[in-house]
């Protein structure tokens, strides 16, 4: 486990509550993430895992009803989605959308340039950029044809997830939230994706793995594991908690929480 006290706060969530169409999903959630850490958020279906990911990334269809979120000390909730991305927040989607007609590489370049502009840097050189993309593609074992295709157009489930990690690798976020990145992957694809994520672990970056199963955590060892149930974090622990959840399911967590 990373215990460097020099690590700075990346994400401070306090009492976060959110609803969609009048239905409360998050009900006072607390979470603290520091740089260099990998946190896994686990929980049963419908617990609010995807809502948490989308709320943090700035999806407008959710209404925030209470609480605060600081991202590197800055009020995250007041920023529109695109500003969050430019400041270094990245969401790897559970279901990456297909956008035929918008080229993969152009999107990636525009995303990188938007981020560079925010940081006061010049636009990336086209030639260097292509070199960078090719290098990261190799890491993710992606086919050359990716370069000429539309965003996720005709990609298999595994290819879409690899593409998400590729984007993460190019954009180098401060905080990456990976929403069910393991779902729909066969074991080989899972290894490629996990290897990609592991290679992106850094002292100045934090990663939030949102997952239903422990399977992904066999390949990416988290520093902390949290159980998200009924809209809040009911239990936190280390990597061993994931194994316990795998063996015992989730119900005991709720019972235990009710007694404390």
């Amino acid at each position: 486990m990373t215990t460097n006290t020099q690590n700075t706060a990346i994400l401070e969530i306090k009492g976060l509550s959110a609803e969609i169409n009048g239905r409360a999903i998050l009900k006072g959630l607390d979470l603290h993430v520091r740089s260099g850490e990998v946190h896994a958020i686990m929980g049963p279906n419908g617990a609010g895992k995807s809502t948490l990911s989308q709320v943090l990334a700035g999806r407008q269809s959710y209404a925030i009803t209470a609480g605060s979120v600081l991202f590197r000390g800055e009020d995250l909730l007041s920023l529109p989605a695109e500003e969050r991305a430019r400041r270094g927040l990245f969401l790897g989607f559970q279901y990456p959308v297909e956008i035929p007609g918008v080229n993969n590489v152009y999107l990636l370049k525009a995303a990188l340039n938007a981020k560079r502009k925010q940081a006061g840097l010049a636009e990336v050189d086209a030639f260097e950029f292509l070199g960078l993309v090719r290098e990261k593609m190799q890491l993710m074992q992606m086919d050359e044809s990716f370069l000429s295709r539309g965003v996720n157009e005709g990609f298999s489930g595994g290819e879409k997830k690899r593409n998400e990690i590729l984007q993460m690798a190019v954009l180098e976020p401060v905080l990456a939230i990976l929403d069910e990145t393991d779902s729909g992957l066969d074991i080989d694809a899972l290894k490629v994706v996990a290897n990609g994520v592991n290679s992106l672990r850094r002292h100045d970056r934090a990663i939030l793995l949102v997952t239903h199963y422990q399977r992904l955590l066999d390949y990416i060892t988290p520093d902390y594991v949290h159980v998200l149930m009924d809209g809040k974090i009911l239990k936190s622990g280390t990597a061993t908690l994931a194994h316990e959840l795998e063996a015992r399911g989730y119900d005991w967590v709720r019972e235990e929480a009710a007694h404390t």
Binding site: Q54, G58, E82, A85, L107, Q167
Partner: peptide
């Protein structure tokens, strides 16, 4: 939202 989340 996908595009916004990429900083566009």
């Amino acid at each position: 939202f996908y595009l916004l989340s990429r900083g566009i």
